[in-house]
């Protein structure tokens, strides 16, 4: 292995950090969007990653070309998210936060156990094609293609989402509903459609993350959604729950922190990397209890 110059080392780690940060950011957007509108922390969001990945895997095994299977996987992830909203969350809308949180745990346990029964608890290799699974060499730099793709895909999606949120009536309605549900209803905003759109967008993003995550890790299992959703939740808290720019920022900060700590911690401590990450989070929250971009005013009601 050729050794890297310090500059190349930094570039390599930066690509790593932006790539993993992109994945956290895309996850965090779905979580924070639903939270902003429904005050619901949807932990089952992580299972949409799993659903999308398994759907993609089985479509490929059935002979569907990989990239079409990816489309199918994302679509199935989206449908699952919409079904979740309709069956589990809509009936308890307006209930106390705790009831909604517990419901999301119930949905998680339900989906994960269904997956264990259907697919067995053991992991399976994810059939990522060369484009998602090859190393590219730039001089001494070795970069995984999936990292570059994750960065590009996240960039495009963030631009599209920004346009959607700031320039369209539906995007503006979403911001209005997340600010004041009652006033939104009194203005005639179709709140059901807003809820469905938020779940739909979040689930599509989760489906996309599923593909990127699985290609990165190389294998999938029924509980694979837990780790990403936890990280996404941390990203949301860093940025301020309910804030979309905050979620994106939190995602990238978390990515950088992880890679940075991985690089500077002595080898004996790297297994405890996440403990250090969470310690930094606790310190941050001591100074900014509502996250970096969270509102400093108290919540209404």
């Amino acid at each position: 292995m050729t050794s890297l110059t310090p500059f190349e080392f930094i570039i390599q780690q930066a690509i790593n950090a932006i790539s993993i940060g992109s994945i956290y950011a895309l996850m965090a957007i779905g979580l924070t969007m639903v939270f902003g509108i429904l005050r619901l922390i949807n932990f089952a969001h992580g299972d949409l990653i799993m659903v999308g990945s398994y759907a993609t895997l089985f479509l490929t095994l059935a002979g569907v070309p990989f990239w079409i299977a990816v489309g199918g996987g994302i679509a199935i992830s989206c449908l699952t998210g919409l079904l979740m909203e309709r069956v589990a969350y809509r009936p308890i809308r307006g209930a106390q936060d705790v009831s909604m949180l517990l419901t999301s745990f119930a949905v998680t346990i339900f989906l994960e156990n269904i997956a264990i029964l259907m697919f067995s608890p053991s992991s399976r290799p994810f059939p990522a094609p060369g484009l998602l699974n090859s190393a590219m060499n730039f001089g001494a730099l070795r970069v995984n293609s999936v990292d570059i793709i994750a960065i590009v895909v996240a960039g495009i999606l963030l631009i599209l989402l920004t346009f959607f949120i700031t320039r369209t009536d539906m995007g503006t309605s979403m911001r209005a509903v997340s600010q004041d549900l009652l006033a939104s209803r009194l203005m005639g905003i179709n709140t059901n459609r807003v809820f469905v759109t938020a779940f739909g967008i979040g689930s599509i993003l989760a489906g996309i993350v599923g593909i990127l995550w699985s290609a990165r890790v190389g294998k999938i299992d029924p509980l694979m959604g837990f780790y990403p959703v936890l990280k996404a939740f941390v990203a949301c808290v860093i940025g301020g729950l309910g804030s979309l720019p905050g979620a994106v920022m939190g995602g990238y900060i978390l990515g950088f922190l992880e890679i940075l700590l991985q690089g500077i911690l002595p080898a004996s401590l790297t297994p405890f990397r996440d403990a250090f990450v969470f310690s930094i989070l606790i310190v941050l929250l001591l100074f900014r209890p509502n996250g970096l971009l969270g509102s400093t005013e108290m919540e209404k009601f």
Binding site: D180, M187, G188
Partner: peptide, 19 residues
């Protein structure tokens, strides 16, 4: 009043006409 504080004036007005 319950205006949407984080939305601009024109966005608030657009929300009144959203349907």
């Amino acid at each position: 009043r319950r205006i949407f504080g984080s939305l601009t004036v024109i966005e608030n007005l657009r929300m009144g006409a959203v349907r």
